[in-house]
């Protein structure tokens, strides 16, 4: 028999620890709400002075004169993200198919550690490399090739570097969704005389579609909110986006405006609104990706 107070101590430890852990888990949920509400509250000054449609659709950005139009920046963000996805989606899906369906085990292991390294590289390092490689590439080769004069600090360069940054997440997630499919699917298709590629295209793509869609959505979220690498190469000019001209994205607007931000309360509120917008859009995409993925899991009972 254990002494009484020792048992009491054990029970007290149990009670305290479970309360503490519950508080932490609740705390993280509360944090989410607090972030949302605080950002909302601080963007009130802007939203009470201007209507939401006015702010989102107007194209004039001049904080000193009290004009806050986010249209060029929002368009710029979608433009850059779209270019990135245009390159990253096919490349990532092909890579994932090769790794999952064709590659020998050694190549697979090597490549997955490669992807791990790529995923861990900080975004400023991507930015530096974009400045050293992609900017001259666009300015000296791609620009003249299509007959446009450009400094290289432009929307296209930002899209290119973002594509590279989306690779790891898109590849690893779509690889996982292919791996999760039961082997019987492949066997059934191959036994009907389909080639490997026909099996991949007609059976696996259909079956793993939701997983790949979820990988693409998460990649989109990553590209949409990426700040530093884009801010370094996008040029930082608040104008309607065009492929070879300097532009601006939502995150890079925040970074480049932070110096002036303290002096103008309304601009401060506008930048908080940008953060809120980013937060909401990316969260919607992330939750959507989660939901799509769950549908896949329910279908294959993984």
């Amino acid at each position: 028999m254990m002494p009484r107070d020792a048992a009491g101590l054990r029970m007290r430890k149990e009670a305290v620890s479970s309360r503490g852990m519950q508080a932490l888990a609740l705390g993280i949920s509360v944090l989410f709400l607090v972030m949302l509400l605080l950002l909302l509250a601080k963007s009130r000054p802007l939203l009470s002075g201007y209507s939401l449609t006015e702010v989102l659709l107007s194209s004039h950005w001049d904080p000193a004169r009290g004009q806050f139009g986010f249209a060029p920046v929002i368009l710029g963000t979608f433009y850059v993200t779209f270019i990135a996805m245009l390159i990253a989606v096919p490349v990532s899906l092909l890579c994932a198919v090769y790794l999952s369906e064709y590659a020998p085990g050694r190549v697979r292991r090597m490549f997955s550690s490669f992807i791990g390294v790529l995923a861990g590289i900080p975004s400023v390092v991507f930015g530096i490399c974009a400045l050293l490689v992609f900017v001259p590439l666009v300015a000296d080769y791609i620009g003249p090739w299509v007959g446009v004069e450009t400094t290289g600090l432009c929307i296209l360069t930002a899209g290119l570097i973002l594509a590279v940054m989306v690779f790891p997440i898109a590849i690893s997630l779509s690889y996982e969704s292919l791996q999760a499919l039961p082997i019987e699917l492949r066997e059934a298709s191959l036994s009907m005389g389909a080639t490997r590629w026909e099996t991949t295209r007609k059976v696996l793509f259909k079956a793993a579609g939701p997983g790949m869609l979820s990988a693409i959505l998460l990649g989109f979220g990553r590209a949409f909110g990426e700040t530093m690498a884009v801010a370094m190469v996008v040029g930082g000019k608040n104008q309607m986006p065009s492929l070879f001209a300097a532009g601006q994205t939502l995150p890079s607007l925040i970074v480049s405006s932070v110096g002036e931000m303290m002096s103008l309360p309304l601009e401060q509120s506008a930048l908080v609104f940008v953060a809120l917008f980013l937060f909401v859009v990316v969260t919607v995409f992330n939750l959507l990706a989660r939901w799509v993925e769950k549908r896949l899991q329910a279908r294959w009972k993984i």
């Binding site: 888990a25 993280i28 949920s29 944090l31 989410f32 972030m35 605080l38 950002l39 601080k42 998460l218 979220g221 990553r222 949409f224 909110g225 990426e226 700040t227 995150p251 925040i254 970074v255 930048l271 908080v272 953060a275 980013l278 937060f279 990316v282 969260t283 995409f285 992330n286 939750l287 989660r290």
Partner: peptide, 22 residues
Amino acid sequence: IRNLLDALWGTPSIVYGMFVLT
């Protein structure tokens, strides 16, 4: 809570920066 953590994981870091700054 897992869904929430996933959403927070994907949240751009600049949002955390702006949150703490506010």
